Simulated assay, not measured.
Amino acid sequence: MIPVPSPEVLVEALASTRAAAAAYHTNLFLNLDQIAGWFAEGGLAWMRGPGAVLVRQREAGLDRLFHAATCPGALAEALARLPEPPRTQPWVSDLVGRPEALTDVAGIYAACGFRHHRSLLRMIRVGTPLPAPPDPSVCDEALPGQADAVVAMLRRLLDPLAERIPSPREVARWAADGEMLTVRRGDTLAGMLAYHVQGRSAHLRYWHVDPRFRGGGAGSALLRTFLDRTRGCTRQTLWVLAHNADSIAKYAHYGFHMDPAVDMIMVKGAAGPGGIA
C-alpha cells in the first residue's frame, strides 16, 4: 500500500468506483471531513486496482481495513493482493449490514485468510419516555486535557480488535465539541460517555465505567445525562458486543431495542485462537 495523497483524491476514487459498480459494496461510510481527520493523524494508505479500492487506517497494534468494490469478484481480487500482516499488526475489517446481506462478503474475506472475531449488534431507541432526570452535580463536561486519561481507561477495558480505541486527538475534539461527559471520584476518572449528534439522530459512541467504581451510580448518571441532552433527537443508536448480555440488558432497561444491523469483525493475522460470534 502507498500513502493516500489527499482526502479529496480518496473521496473521488471512492465515488468513481461506486459510479462504475455492477454490485457495489463498501464498509467505508465516512464523509470528507472525517477522512480528513484520519489523514491529519497519519497512517492512511491505500491500494487501488480494477474495480476496487482498499484503504488502511493504521492504529497502535492493528491496521483497520476498508474496501469499496464494484462487485464481489473485484473485492476478492483486491483482498488476494493484500500483503500478509505481521502477527503484531493484524488486519481488522468491520462488515456492516443485515446478516443475510453480509454472507457473501464475509465469505470472500474468509477465503482470503480472515476469520470472524466478534459481532456487534445495533440497538436503537425511538420515542421511549425519558427516565428520571439526572442529577446535574454528578457528571461534568469533559475537558480536552482529559483525553489521555480517557484513552488510557479505554485501552484497559476494551478489546481493540472488536471496539475501536480512539486517539487522544479525537477524544480532545469530542470534548471541545461538548460531546463527552465524565464522572470523577476525587482525582480519578471513574467513567466517561462520548456521543455524537447529527441532525435529529444521536449516536452513543462510548459508555464505560472503571470497574473499581461500578455500582456507585456513575454509569446511570452518564447515560441519563446523555438521554436528557439528546431528548430533542428522534432516535438514539449504539453498537454493543453480541455476547455481552449484561450490557444489552442495561440498554434495554433504558428503552433501547435491537435493530437488524450487525457489524461482523473479520481479523487476519492476530495471535490466539479464533473469536466467537
Rank of each mutant, 00 (worst) to 15 (best):
residue 96 V to F: 08
residue 238 L to G: 07
residue 250 K to H: 12
residue 67 H to P: 00
residue 226 F to V: 03
residue 12 E to C: 02
residue 233 C to G: 12
residue 160 P to I: 11
residue 18 R to D: 10
residue 254 Y to N: 05
residue 268 K to V: 05
residue 141 E to C: 10
residue 33 D to K: 13
residue 187 D to M: 07
residue 277 A to Y: 14
residue 248 I to L: 13
residue 213 F to H: 15
residue 230 T to G: 09
residue 74 A to Q: 01
residue 97 G to A: 09
residue 216 G to N: 11
residue 180 M to W: 04
residue 146 Q to K: 01
residue 80 A to S: 07
residue 46 W to L: 06
residue 21 A to Q: 00
residue 181 L to D: 00
residue 244 N to A: 12
residue 145 G to R: 08
residue 202 A to K: 05
residue 149 A to G: 05
residue 85 P to K: 00
residue 49 G to Y: 01
residue 153 M to G: 02
residue 242 A to G: 13
residue 229 R to M: 01
residue 141 E to M: 15
residue 135 D to P: 00
residue 216 G to I: 04
residue 218 A to C: 13
residue 255 G to D: 07
residue 42 G to R: 11
residue 186 G to N: 01
residue 270 A to I: 12
residue 77 E to C: 04
residue 245 A to Y: 12
residue 124 I to S: 15
residue 40 A to V: 10
residue 147 A to I: 07
residue 114 F to A: 06
residue 136 P to H: 00
residue 40 A to W: 05
residue 6 S to N: 10
residue 28 L to M: 10
residue 58 R to Q: 14
residue 2 I to Y: 03
residue 42 G to W: 11
residue 270 A to Q: 06
residue 12 E to N: 10
residue 149 A to T: 11
residue 276 I to M: 09
residue 84 E to T: 03
residue 13 A to I: 03
residue 171 V to K: 03
residue 245 A to V: 12
residue 266 M to K: 03
residue 222 L to I: 02
residue 72 P to H: 09
residue 40 A to K: 13
residue 236 Q to I: 09
residue 23 A to D: 15
residue 207 W to K: 03
residue 242 A to L: 08
residue 256 F to T: 04
residue 173 R to F: 13
residue 108 I to S: 03
residue 115 R to S: 15
residue 119 S to W: 10
residue 116 H to C: 09
residue 164 R to E: 15
residue 122 R to C: 07
residue 142 A to I: 09
residue 107 G to H: 12
residue 45 A to V: 04
residue 174 W to K: 12
residue 189 L to T: 00
residue 175 A to V: 04
residue 175 A to T: 07
residue 64 R to N: 07
residue 95 L to K: 01
residue 61 G to D: 10
residue 90 P to H: 06
residue 27 N to C: 04
residue 65 L to F: 00
residue 70 T to A: 09
residue 129 P to R: 06
residue 126 V to N: 05
